[in-house]
């Protein structure tokens, strides 16, 4: 199925939650959805006949300077089509539902997004840091990140 068709299908099912379709001249088109509805939308995308996005290739956290976001890259192994979903999150206390129960692979990806951007995923079974030490301060991939000066008394080289 083409991306446009999938978008239309989704728009019909979730008229309020699906916000915007971004088609660019270069690169992949994507669909912006309401962050609060992400769990329902993803569940629909996985279970609906004809869509069956059973493979979450990548879940990325984003910092757009004025807002945060998450990006989901989906495949369907059966129909071999791809789809990209985006959410935008406020700068203060970003949080959205976890999709860990839909795709298990989201577990580590969401932990990474939390580790790097401080985006909280609700209903995640184990929302702790993954790559940085468990007691690290700050979220390194934020654009306004300023690193710790010392860690356990050891000076961190800049």
């Amino acid at each position: 199925m083409l991306v446009q068709e999938i978008y239309d299908n989704l728009k019909e099912k979730f008229p309020e939650a699906v916000l915007e379709f971004i088609g660019t001249a270069t690169g992949d088109p994507s669909t912006v959805v309401d962050a609060g509805q992400i769990y329902n939308i993803c569940k629909y995308l996985r279970d609906q006949d004809g869509l069956e996005f059973d493979y979450l290739a990548l879940l990325s956290g984003m910092d757009y300077k004025d807002k945060f976001g998450t990006v989901y890259h989906l495949y369907s192994l059966k129909y071999k089509h791809r789809f990209v979903i985006k959410t935008y999150l406020p700068k203060e206390d970003p949080s959205l539902p976890s999709v860990e129960r839909i795709w298990k692979t989201a577990n580590w990806h969401e932990r990474e997004a939390y580790d790097m951007f401080g985006i909280k995923f609700e209903n995640h079974p184990n929302m702790i840091r993954i790559l940085c030490p468990y007691d690290w301060e700050g979220y390194p991939l934020r654009k306004d990140y300023v690193g710790q000066e010392t860690y356990h008394g050891v000076r961190i080289p800049v």
Binding site: T24, T26, G27, D28, S30, L58, S60, H73
Partner: peptide
């Protein structure tokens, strides 16, 4: 100097799918 946009490009690595999401 790529134009403004985003792309997810992946290839079959020996270990599996390696992709880069480039904004």
């Amino acid at each position: 100097r790529p134009p403004k946009g985003e792309i997810y490009c992946s290839a079959e690595n020996p270990k599996g799918e390696l992709g880069f999401y480039l904004v």
